[in-house]
Design a protein around this nucleic acid. Structure first.
Lengths: 336, 336
DNA sequence: GCGGGACGTCGAAGCGCTTCGATGGAGGAA
DNA sequence: TTCCTCCATCGAAGCGCTTCGACGTCCCGC
């Protein structure tokens, strides 16, 4: 292994000069810096990560805690993780992967052992047991999602309330008067996942504001459940012409079910959804949707975290504005 | 931060004794060990990861390189990653997440800086540019998948050839005489992804051995492509009654297409697939399938890697035996 | 021509841990 | 009792880096 003393010898300077030349933390003459850089290249020098971390008390590693639960759409998690890694690398940081399974102990462990400098926590619940811990850690963190009590924490998320509103408003703008929300599986609401509830709030608020008749239906992530929900909707709201779907997994089966029940999309029924763009676009009937910007979310989280690491103040709440993309699943309501 | 000297003082021993008491690398009296452990608990001591890594020249971190490409099924990657993390934790190791995007430089970087002790590389190609690098690194690695030239490397994978054979043999055993393989997207074969080609080999070999007429069709991961392939199959092999699918994404659309073309599954057409069990079981028509044991794969990779880290010899090739689960998509061929 | 800043570089200390060789004391054999 | 062995523990060195204070050296202004 080639170390900083080797580089120093080769360049004819002291180890500390090499360190300063590479970090730029003190002025070094042009000439010396060039010699150091040449020596680094010639010897293929790579600073030893642990030595650097120990001396500098910065590991340049971020922790990423990913969820394992049911009802969380996997591709979203993966895309998010990838974008976090990519963004972190831009700041010369690496990412340590933790599963939610390890829970609070895992967070405490990587923080207390100084394995990581900072943490990103996904899938935050409304009353998340990790919140007090995160507040008490001596390391900054960023949460994906909003807990009920977010004071003292930095949170990032899509503005799900606005997303729910946007979906309804689009339907209202197309003349639909009776709408329904097909939501996440019941357990998602039961355990108080914030974003799911926010969609419901936005949906309901916008429907009321626009004077629409509306109902909300949680839905298991299976084709059979989709079918049942479709049947139930038509039974309970015979005049239904607009549906908002916040449940990637049942989007396709739901459309199938509606069509098998004799309703054409978008002829008889318009559908808007909150889901990743790729999902919406790949369906048999491409669906008008509000994108779930997981990549952007990951980048924002990393940006915020690194600003916190430099000691900068960052906003406690960052809500990404939802954007709706028109596709083939929406049409104006037929004149009555 | 509480450090080893604090524990030592509290327990009335020297720091080295604390170290030995905790690592067990030298005999320590029962009595002393208890005092040390009590002090550790009382003070909440956690060894500093970087200091430990620097002194012990072991970081206790594994690198996991995950693929980002098209044609790789995302949930499989995620499940694999989760199982790697979980298995690594059992050995008191953590996992650093790298994307394939960083390429060889990324591997070299984490190895040369001693950020990680060992590496797990997913999605290995037949002629993978990373192979020479992995051989030359001073750190052990395990590959998921088999390159053409695997000498000197440790590889783990499902036995995809046997999986392909198994699918065909099941169809043959049910009396089917004309079969087809609907495979991965063309680019997967073009870039030489080993597992995809192995399925083709197994499929073809078993079909020949059983005296079946057979064809192979790559297929893009879109419903439209599935539809086209279904039409083409019926045109080119009018007597077709058995289909093997190695492409999670088109499984459902393919079945839809067949049924729309007037073929019932399994009445007129039997289908076997190679895909994760959850996918197979969740379909409208649950599909008889060979499981893609991503969790087991992750565990095996970690087990092998940790054995290598202890200096043990491990087999170069580990092929997991495929298992086929009967579901609703297969039936005996009608008497002619 | 001399004092005083800058500027560029050096040396040493120290980050928190592991590990090696050394040490002391207890216990057994003679 | 003496000597030797073995066991448990200690002290010091060192892992490779960063960082702080100190030390020239050069140049400018008076």
């Amino acid at each position: 292994m080639v170390k900083i003393t080797d580089v120093a010898r080769n360049a004819g300077v002291s180890p500390s000069t090499v360190s300063y030349a590479l970090s730029g933390k003190r002025p070094i003459s042009e000439e010396t810096r060039r010699r150091v850089e040449a020596a680094v290249r010639e010897l293929g020098y790579r600073p030893h990560a642990s030595a650097r971390a120990l001396a500098g008390s910065r590991s340049n590693v971020l922790a990423l805690v990913i969820p394992l639960r049911t009802g969380i759409h996997v591709p979203v998690v993966t895309q998010f993780a990838v974008s976090v890694v990519t963004a972190a690398r831009r700041y010369d940081h690496d990412v340590l992967l933790l599963t939610q399974e390890e829970g609070e102990d895992g967070l405490r462990r990587v923080a207390d052992t100084a394995l990581v400098d900072a943490l990103i926590v996904m899938d935050v619940q409304l009353h998340d047991p990790r919140l007090p811990l995160l507040r008490s850690l001596d390391r900054p963190s960023v949460l994906i999602g909003f807990p009920r009590e977010a004071a003292g924490l930095t949170c990032v998320d899509l503005d799900f309330r606005a997303a729910g509103e946007l979906c309804v408003e689009r339907l209202a703008g197309l003349g639909h008067r009776v709408v329904a929300l097909v939501g996440s599986p019941p357990e998602v609401y039961v355990r108080g996942t914030a974003f799911a509830q926010r969609v419901v709030q936005g949906f309901t608020a916008a429907a009321d504001r626009c004077g629409l008749a509306s109902r909300v239906h949680p839905c298991e992530a299976t084709p059979a459940a989709a079918r049942r929900v479709a049947e139930r909707l038509l039974r309970e709201q015979p005049a239904l012409t607009g549906v908002v779907v916040h449940n990637e997994a049942v989007l396709e089966p739901l459309i199938d079910a509606f069509e098998q029940l004799g309703l054409r999309v978008p002829g008889d029924l318009s559908i808007t959804a909150i889901c990743p763009d790729e999902t919406a676009a790949a369906l048999r009937v491409p669906v008008t949707s509000v994108a779930l910007p997981s990549a952007e979310l990951g980048e924002r989280a990393v940006d915020l975290l690194l600003r916190k690491l430099t000691g900068a103040e960052v906003p406690e709440a960052t809500l990404l504005t939802p954007h709706l993309t028109n596709r083939a699943s929406t049409a104006p309501r037929d004149a009555p």
